[in-house]
Nucleic acid binder design. Structure first.
Lengths: 115, 115
DNA sequence: ATTTAATATCGCAAATATACGATAATTAAT
DNA sequence: ATTAATTATCGTATATTTGCGATATTAAAT
């Protein structure tokens, strides 16, 4: 992007965009669904159900950790991952506020649109 | 990415990821908020409130159009954009289903976590 | 008829993201 | 002590995204 302009946006816009980015790849959506179905998963279980190599899955897991959506612990040779529900709830709230505040504003005019 | 594996994921995972991708940049979040506040905007009004060049804003607008979140009409030399509320509602529903179904599953175990 | 205004698109450069194999590190199993 | 299993990370290749200036197009204003 030649230059990164992200920091020049409103913090709230950036935060929502970052939330969205964390789940903007189907692998990461699938990882979150897989873990939430089983409460917790070791890395290998996730690799088994995704059409990606172990190293690539590990990379996606790292991103979800970085975004705060996952927590992980090491158990012998295995790594166990589970959902950070607190962060998950913040995500959910962020999206809902965005959608709902936009929609409620829309109710006020609703007629004179150009398209 | 060497190879694109996106098509090998479940359709619903891909769809949610694509929704998320559409709002995964603060400029696009800001654009949607700006338009929803005023019901409709011409391109120039959006350019005025974003820290980006006209051509870059136009590109983000195009992406939001492609994602279906915006509709646009030409009015003389100006381009008017407004929110496609139907698509917007589908987005919102998609996110909520994702968040809520994960969360409701979580309630069932909730204790024996590894992290 | 010219000039101005508004916007989309093209071409390019730089930054990020995606994917994988190879490898290292660590623990478990033999 | 070796070997096998598990996973994170490194290096690398490729694809995509982001950003901008320049330009083309079209309509409006002069």
């Amino acid at each position: 992007m030649a230059q990164n302009k992200k920091e020049e946006f409103k913090k709230s816009d950036l935060e929502l965009a970052d939330f969205a980015k964390a789940i903007s790849h189907p692998a990461r959506v699938a990882i979150l669904k897989t873990i939430s179905k089983k409460n917790m998963c070791i890395c290998g279980e996730i690799v088994d159900v995704l059409p990606l190599s172990q190293s690539t899955v590990s990379q996606h897991l790292r991103e979800l950790l970085k975004a705060g959506l996952l927590e992980g612990t090491v158990d012998g040779t295995k790594s166990c991952y589970c959902i950070n529900w607190k962060a998950f709830a913040r995500f959910s709230k962020g999206f809902n506020e965005f959608f709902n505040s936009a929609k409620s504003r829309a109710e006020s005019f609703e007629k004179k649109k150009c398209c």
